[in-house]
Structures are given as structure tokens and as C-alpha cells.
Simulated scan of single mutants.
Amino acid sequence: MPMSLHDAFVPSARQILIGMKGLVDKAEAFVRDNGLQDSELIDAKLAEDMWSLPWHVRACWVHTGYAVRLVMDGEFTPDFTEIPSDWEAMRTMLDDALAELDGIDAEALEAISGQTTGFILGGKRLMEMTAANFLLSFNQPNFNFHAATFYGILRMKSMPLGKMDFMGPMRVLGS
């Protein structure tokens, strides 16, 4: 049986989002345990022309549950109107993304997988793809980039993290 669009996108996104929630918890503890100000991590960027930590949380939200919700209607416009300002707001945004993913009807997503999705930015329709290709070749790579950048910022700030912290709970037999 071929893999459904839901199976190709949702479980992996959930896994990494859960890992990110753990990273937020560890970052908050790292700040507290090392006598740092929250802003030393929250305002950190990998490079001056890149986004800070909370922007990457927002981007992960945008490219997961929010994206699927919009793809169901055939048009995607990124939403960066609400950037989380603290650890709790980051956790809440990650929880919201997880809740949206949990609410996705696998059959409904499969039903629209071949339909056209337009990417709208600045009021202009910049490209069109099938829903499946949009989620798997646009949203999924964007999501993974922002999740990895979030992790990279924390490592750059000397947090003792490993790959397993990033990966979240894997889907192993018996779990």
C-alpha cells in the first residue's frame, strides 16, 4: 500500500515539534541554571541577517498545521503576525501546531493531495503546485530548516544538546 500524504507529512512533523518543545524547556532551564537573561537566547541569531529563536518557532507553526489547514482550501499565505515573545509563548505555539496536526483528517488530506495549491505572498500568486507537492517539497523542507536552525542557535549558545534532543520521540515498534 502506498504511503498517504498524511503519513508522509504529519507524523514526522509531530516528532520534530515535540522535540522542539523539549528544546524550549531545556533552553529555559539553561538560562536559569547559568544565571543568564532570557534575551541572551531568545534574541540570538545564527547570523545578523537571520531570524531570532522565536521566529523559527513561528515558522515551524506556519509550515505544519497552519499550512495543512490552508492547503485544504487551495491557497497558502505565510502568517508571521504573532511572534512568540517568551518561553511559554513558544511552548503554546508549538502546542497549537501539534493540535492542528492532530485535527487533520487523513482521508480529507488524501482527497485533496492532487488539487492545486497556490502560494500567495504580498497579494501575488507566486507559484502553484499540487497539495502533496506543496506540503512535501515546500512546507516540509522549510519546517525542517527552521527546526534545525532553532536547534543550531541553542548549540551556538553552548547548550549541551545532542541529535536526540532535536529528533523527538521516534516511532519505534511497541510504542
Rank of each mutant, 00 (worst) to 15 (best):
W51K: 09
D79W: 00
M156K: 15
L109N: 02
E88Y: 04
T77H: 02
M164P: 04
A97I: 06
G65M: 06
E75W: 04
Q15H: 01
A108W: 06
A106K: 12
E100V: 01
V31G: 03
F30D: 00
A132V: 02
S137K: 15
T117E: 07
A67M: 12
G19A: 03
V10S: 14
P54D: 15
V68K: 10
A99G: 06
T64I: 08
Q115R: 13
Q140D: 09
A29K: 14
G114R: 07
D96P: 08
G19K: 05
H146P: 03
F166T: 04
V57Y: 04
I120V: 09
F30Q: 00
H63N: 15
D165Q: 03
I120E: 11
T64L: 03
R69A: 15
L41W: 04
E88H: 13
I153H: 00
G174L: 15
V71F: 02
M50W: 11
N142G: 05
F150I: 00
K26F: 04
P84C: 03
D43W: 01
A27E: 01
M167V: 02
D105E: 14
G152I: 03
C60R: 05
S52M: 07
G74A: 05
M156T: 04
I104R: 05
V172P: 00
K157Q: 09
N144K: 10
T92N: 13
G123E: 08
G103M: 14
C60G: 07
I83Y: 00
L36Y: 05
M127T: 07
V24W: 10
G103K: 08
T130G: 08
R32T: 05
V10D: 11
P54K: 11
I120D: 06
S175L: 13
D38G: 04
N34V: 02
M1Y: 07
S137N: 11
F76A: 07
D96V: 00
G118R: 14
M156F: 08
L161D: 00
E100R: 11
F76D: 06
R171W: 09
I18H: 12
I120G: 02
E40M: 14
E88C: 04
N142V: 05
D7Q: 12
D95L: 10
Q15F: 10
T81R: 06
L36E: 01
K124H: 11
E28I: 02
S137C: 09
M170A: 08
E128G: 11
K124S: 10
V31C: 10
R125P: 04
F76V: 06
E88K: 12
M20R: 02
G103A: 15
G174R: 09
A108C: 07
I112W: 03
A132R: 15
A97L: 07
D96N: 15
D7A: 13
A148L: 15
W51T: 03
G168A: 10
A132C: 01
P160C: 07
S175F: 13
A99D: 12
L136S: 03
N144R: 09
D33M: 01
M129N: 12
V31S: 13
D25Q: 08
M159Q: 09
A67R: 09
M164E: 13
A111I: 06
I120N: 11
A106H: 03
T81I: 05
A89M: 04
T92Q: 12
A106N: 12
N144F: 15
S113Y: 01
Y66M: 14
E82S: 13
A27I: 03
H6Q: 09
D105P: 12
A148H: 06
M164L: 15
P84R: 11
V10Q: 13
V10P: 10
G74W: 14
I112E: 14
S137D: 08
V57E: 02
